[in-house]
Simulated scan of single mutants.
Amino acid sequence: MTLNHSEKEAVIREVHRLFAVAERYFNRSFPLPDVSFRRSGKNAGTAFLQQNRVNFHPVLLAANKAAFFSDVIPHEVSHLITWHTAGKRRRVKPHGPEWQAVMQHVYGVSPSTTHDFDLSVLGLTTFNYRCGCQTIALSVRRHNNVKKGRTYRCRRCGENLVFVKNSEAT
């Protein structure tokens, strides 16, 4: 699943449209960012603040176009707008109140920090780990870190993740 030229152009137009919305809201201009389309693990999108660039995962974008336009693109653009309005002068949390305000007040989007896209389209190798409440698939990188002694905790229950030895790498 790949993006064609017109699909990429539609994303770039949406980024530019969202910047224009922010310019009207804040009554000031912002430099338009570069937009790239590169695979980036499980990340749907990434904002590179000091480079004034956003990257979108082309495979996840192709499989989830509507969600990208309604949530992911505004999410990443909000990071850049937050950087331009508050982050250059002081350190702000990536999903802190300033970013949340841009999501809600400028774009009218609920400030969600994660996506729940089906990642099977990526064909990533994962390893199953358990905690007290769920099974979590860790990437090869994190699995190798565990083998070197690193521990990971479940964000939901706080327990350490334990490798499920009978699991197959997927």
Rank of each mutant, 00 (worst) to 15 (best):
H84N: 11
E76W: 05
R153D: 09
C133K: 01
K88S: 06
R141F: 01
I73N: 00
L49H: 07
A169H: 05
S112A: 11
R141L: 06
V106E: 04
G149Q: 13
A86C: 11
V21D: 06
T170E: 14
S78H: 04
R91V: 13
K8R: 07
D71R: 10
C154H: 07
G108D: 02
H57Y: 03
V15S: 08
Q134H: 04
N128R: 15
V77E: 02
A67R: 13
A66V: 13
K88Y: 00
Y25F: 11
K148H: 09
T46G: 06
F30C: 03
R155I: 00
T46F: 10
P94K: 05
L138R: 15
L80N: 05
R24A: 14
F48G: 04
E7I: 09
P33L: 05
P58H: 09
V21T: 14
K8P: 03
K42Q: 13
Q104H: 11
N27T: 15
E9S: 07
F117L: 05
R89P: 01
R155G: 13
S167T: 05
N4Q: 09
Q134N: 10
R17A: 08
H84T: 04
S120I: 10
S40C: 12
V146G: 06
H79G: 09
C133L: 08
Q51N: 14
A10Y: 03
F37Y: 03
P111S: 02
Q50V: 07
A137P: 10
V102S: 07
P94Y: 08
P74Y: 11
I81L: 01
